[in-house]
Design a binder for these strands. Structure first.
Length: 475
RNA sequence: CGGGGCGUAGCGCAGUCCGGUUCAGCGCGCUUGGUUCGGGACCAAGAGGUCCCCGGUUCAAAUCCGGGCGCCCCGACCA
């Protein structure tokens, strides 16, 4: 393993894969487009999952698990859904050494099999709402893959809810979007734009798609989570009806929503620097790493004594830490190692600290160093982690703000996109116009923000427009 | 599916043009022992190979020829 990481300015894509591999987040699997999520990367995912799971349960959702295999006939029930997903599905044609009578699709998402089951479970308005989430893997046969951002198989959660009326389903879709915003901003320190997707960008089978959208370190957009109002599309495709209070038969209203291991790619690109990862403390596997510095056994025992008092205090506060007391590497090596792996705080304890009953704290994001008495330090670590989170968020937000421009005409638009920025503009165009813009500039509408009340002129068509949209090049 | 790059020790690579005593090599990592330890330590001794695969040419192939496979990067689709 070579020592250094490619600089971001030199080759951003290479920097990204260097970080993923050298920080031991993931490795390539033997099958094209697959990845192995290694323990350090998986620990981040577990933290994300635990946080999201708690938020889902707090809003009344329950977990379940549906099968990986979906009968071909199910996939074909909803017209737009098949059209959208069939081309990127893996299909099993043989089992037990025999050709199957009906091919089995490996789920690219589970709407079809879930709604086939919902038909059996939903009879009355009393069965609603049905708020089920599942943590699962899905497979999409992508043409071009990238670790965490787009792999053939990935991990995610998919929520699938059923409601008695449109308003309630709509509220659900937006409630989840708000949960996703909190997850991204309050836990991953990743500022996101929130809003609706354009017609061409929405989920295959949805009436409306909402999304959170973040800016990465190379100024490209990353769709970090989506929530869909599905209307009655799947209820109709799978004939899922219920008797309402008036004893009338109605189709059920639906939502679905998901975030995936792609979020880890988002963390890497939202915060990382040329030294490697910078992890938001609330999902970092270790929030603190302790590096001892000693020359001989007497120093060692003195330092270990201080570390014992420190780690007891950290444990009491449920701060995740790692004491790197291995004899194999020098302190300098460890500094670089843990910086590459993004641990938010490093504590250095050597003879100088031990004799004074002090410790040195170094922030990963700023690489600033301060020496503090142990007792004071113990009090300050938790608040410092919060400050670290806020600073990471602010830095990313400022970066996005600095790289977002408002334009009034197509010339300005092209220039801004050329510079790789997010572009805000009045939009009165249609899907065809959006497709032309994508053709010419590679940029797409990332999000149509909520709560718009201004009027203006569309930068592209010149027609009057009542909403501002955000364009950007995206992952 | 188009364009580009690559395949030699765990990783990164040299060697390939021009076949042969510089052809099984280097750096990192790994093992053992010792000295080190405040920003990627040093010394010594080791272990480690289907040179991607199949076929061909030749006295002789990592090297030349034919075919195949795989991976990465860049474009068209996507969380």
């Amino acid at each position: 393993m070579s020592l250094s990481i490619t600089k971001r300015s030199q080759d951003y894509a290479k920097w990204y894969t260097d970080v993923v591999q050298k920080a031991e987040l993931a490795d390539y699997g033997p099958v094209k487009g697959t990845m192995v999520i290694r323990p350090y990367g998986y620990a981040i995912w577990e933290n994300i999952r635990n946080i999201a799971d708690r938020m889902f349960k707090a809003t009344g959702h329950v977990n379940a698990y549906f099968p990986l295999f979906i009968p071909e006939s199910y996939m074909k029930r909803e017209a737009e859904h098949v059209a959208g997903f069939a081309p990127e599905c893996a299909v099993v044609t043989h089992g037990g050494g025999k050709k199957l009578t009906e091919p089995l699709y490996i789920r690219p998402t589970s709407e079809t099999i879930i709604w086939a089951m919902y038909k059996r479970w939903i009879k009355s308005y009393r069965d609603l709402p049905l708020l089920i989430n599942q943590w699962a893997n899905v497979v999409r046969w992508e043409m071009r893959t990238r670790l965490f951002l787009r792999t053939t198989e990935f991990l995610w959660q998919e929520g699938h809810t059923a409601h008695a009326d449109a308003r309630e389903a709509e509220e659900e879709a937006q409630r989840i979007l708000e949960i996703y915003r909190q997850l991204a901003e309050d836990y991953l320190a990743m500022p996101v734009l929130v809003g609706q997707k354009s017609e061409s960008q929405k989920f295959a089978g949805a009436v409306r798609t909402y999304a959170i959208e973040a800016m990465m370190g190379d100024k490209k957009a990353l769709q970090a989570g989506t929530s869909h109002f599905l209307g009655q599309n799947f209820a109709k495709a799978f004939d899922v009806t219920f008797l309402n209070r008036e004893n009338q038969l109605e189709y059920v209203w639906a939502t679905s929503w998901g975030v995936s291991t792609r979020l880890i790619g988002g963390i890497i690109m939202a915060h990382g620097d040329d030294k490697g990862l910078i992890l938001p403390p609330r999902v970092a596997p270790y929030q603190v790493v302790i590096v001892p510095i000693w020359k001989n056994d007497s120093e060692k025992s003195q330092i270990n004594e201080l570390v014992a008092r420190l780690t007891e205090a950290l444990q009491a506060q449920q701060i995740r830490f790692y004491y790197d007391d291995s004899e194999q590497n020098t302190p300098g090596w460890k500094f670089n190692h843990w910086e590459m792996r993004g641990t938010p705080l490093r504590i250095e304890i050597g003879p100088r600290e031990a004799t004074q009953n002090k410790i040195v704290i170094v922030r990963r994001d700023q690489l600033t160093r301060q020496m503090l008495p142990l007792d004071a330090a113990v009090e300050q670590i938790a608040p410092l982690l919060d400050t670290f989170h806020r600073d990471l968020f602010q830095k990313a937000l400022q970066f996005r703000t600095e790289n977002t421009v408002t334009v009034e005409n197509y010339h300005q638009f092209c220039q801004a996109i050329e510079e790789g920025r997010f572009v805000q503009a009045f939009w009165g165009g249609d899907t065809a116009a959006e497709a032309r813009i994508q053709e010419e500039t590679k940029a797409t509408i990332r999000v149509i923000p909520f709560e718009q009340n201004q009027k203006g002129t569309c930068f592209y068509t010149g027609k009057s427009a009542d909403k501002i949209v955000v364009f950007a090049k995206a992952y």
